[in-house]
Nucleic acid binder design. Structure first.
Length: 501
DNA sequence: ACTCACCCTG
DNA sequence: CAGGGTGAGT
């Protein structure tokens, strides 16, 4: 029976169709400085695992270098640039270009100065003796750092060697073969024990601390017009062809914890997402920038906080499926400070999709409850809402499609339409919301799907689809079919570990 | 003015 | 899935 007697323009007030008004008016969170270089060069390499740290180091050095150059650029006397904050998007582009040009200029001049053996410092006033003294101090520091890094490499190799064995690749050697690595070693410890959940955490912390010192030291050296111990300065700026701060290349695919976790053999019973959360909790220094594209409306674009998310990598569509929804929006001004969950991750997306099995129209309160690890602001809230809107869209499209198909197949009664786990419709829906198929479709969702299918079938069979707003009556029915979401979804660090098959 | 659902599009 | 437009509710 076609739902009739409903007003053409429906009011969803009183239902949860309309999300309650959002409270967050402030855009808190870190101040994203446009001046912070976030770009990174083409880091593609043959050894993704070793690249992880390698890229991190390069990125850090670059950021620090540019930072140092930036702070000391007054003596350069080159063109003026706009203030660091409050740039409009167009200004940001020019600004980024100018900054990159300056950095390249400075770096190259440093390099040439060193080659000439003359350190033209341009008015910093350091005496040669003092510089020599500082140099020796810095060298000592660097030696220390080298030792630390070397030790960390060994530990890392121990962990990764297990993976290397399986994949037939020599990760340890690969890591040591990275050109320009500090204290590179070809030693590959055998008998690696795999405890990524614990050892990796400790290693990341250690590595983070050591790297911080190393990078700082290197930058100090740079700022004193000395050549860097690693990475000849002119070796990378030239490949940077995009504005530094906002355009972020797809460069750290392995930084995603989901992928990192996936690197290790996982028992089938352990959801990769749980591992991902574990990894995140351990320390997200080098992947904290991983986030989904977050941009919702032109209004939000005006917010500096959101503007950062706007210019995401342009190549999402070419990425592997598993990464297609990931986008780096750049790193925090400092790589090393701990951060709360700023953006929505692929793990959150996965969770949202599974939650759709229970709720088609989640209220903002529900979202906050079940995404408690996310720091909500307008952007995040809107993005989540948009997700569910997209989920609904797919859901309803499938319903209409299958009901029309049934009609054309000669189905006469809606009662003969059923949705079971074996149904093609269920398969399609499962493929969309539960791609990994590690979660069983709740029977409640099958019921909702069946009801929806029958609603569509009835409406179409009775010609209600002639009305431009014919779907609205169906929506009103469906929005009342919300189910209780399992408490397991409330956990900020995991999904229900209901793994099937 | 603001927010959200839906629609269409890429 | 995200952007943008539109209509509607508050």
């Amino acid at each position: 029976m076609c739902v009739t007697g409903l007003p053409t323009t429906m009011s969803f007030s009183g239902t949860n169709l309309k999300l309650e008004r959002l409270e967050e008016q402030q855009l808190e969170g870190p101040t994203y400085q446009l001046s912070q270089p976030r770009g990174c060069g083409d880091m593609a390499g043959p050894y993704p695992d070793s690249d992880l740290i390698s890229q991190w180091l390069r990125r850090s050095v670059k950021a620090k270098l540019a930072e140092a150059c930036d702070s000391g650029e007054s003596s350069q006397g080159d063109r003026e640039v706009p203030a660091k904050r409050g740039l409009d998007p167009e200004g940001a582009k020019d600004f980024a270009w100018a900054k990159r040009a300056r950095v390249e200029n400075i770096v190259c001049s440093i390099s040439s100065s060193y080659r000439d053996g003359s350190l033209e410092e341009g008015g910093t006033g350091y005496s040669r003796s003092r510089r020599a003294q500082e140099r020796s101090q810095l060298k000592q520091q660097l030696e220390k750092m080298r030792e630390q890094v070397f030790q960390l490499q060994e530990k890392l190799c121990q962990i990764y060697s297990g993976v290397a064995r399986e994949e037939g690749s020599n990760v340890g050697a690969a890591w040591s073969q990275e050109p320009g690595r500090v204290g590179a070693s070809t030693r590959r410890p055998g008998g690696g024990s795999r405890h990524p959940g614990t050892l990796a955490e400790a290693l990341k912390e250690e590595l983070g601390a050591a790297m911080t010192q190393v990078v700082d030291t290197v930058v100090q050296v740079f700022s004193r017009q000395q050549p860097p111990p690693e990475e000849p300065p002119c070796s990378y700026p030239s490949d940077q062809t995009e504005a530094l701060p906002l355009v972020v290349r797809k460069s750290l695919p392995h930084a995603c914890p989901e992928l990192v976790a996936g690197t290790f053999p996982q028992p089938m019973a352990v959801s990769p997402y749980l591992s991902a959360f574990k990894d995140r909790a351990a320390g997200e220094a080098y992947w904290e920038g991983v986030s989904l594209r977050t941009k919702l409306s032109s209004r939000h674009l005006l917010q500096p906080h959101c503007a950062l998310f706007q210019l995401a990598g342009p190549t999402d569509h070419q990425l592997p499926k598993r990464q297609a929804t990931e986008t780096h929006h750049g790193l925090e001004p400092t790589l090393y400070k701990p951060s709360s969950q700023e953006g929505l991750t692929p793990v959150h997306l996965k969770k949202a999709k599974l939650m759709f099995f229970y709720t088609r129209y989640p209220s903002s309160g529900t979202l906050k409850t079940y995404f408690s690890d996310v720091k909500f602001n307008r952007c995040i809230t809107s993005q989540l809402i948009k997700w569910f809107s997209n989920f609904r869209e797919f859901f309803y499209i499938q319903m209409e499609k299958f009901s029309r198909q049934a009609l054309s197949d000669g189905v006469l009664s809606a009662e003969t339409l059923t949705v079971t786990r074996d149904s093609e419709l269920a398969r399609v829906l499962n493929q969309h919301y539960n791609k990994a198929n590690d979660y069983e479709i709740p029977s409640k969702f099958l019921e909702v799907s069946q009801i929806t299918l029958r609603e569509f079938f009835n409406a179409i069979s009775q010609g209600c689809d002639a009305d431009p707003s014919w779907k609205k009556s169906i929506y009103k029915v469906i929005c009342k079919l919300e189910c209780d979401i399992p408490d397991a979804f409330k956990s900020p660090h995991g999904l229900p570990d209901t793994v099937h098959e």
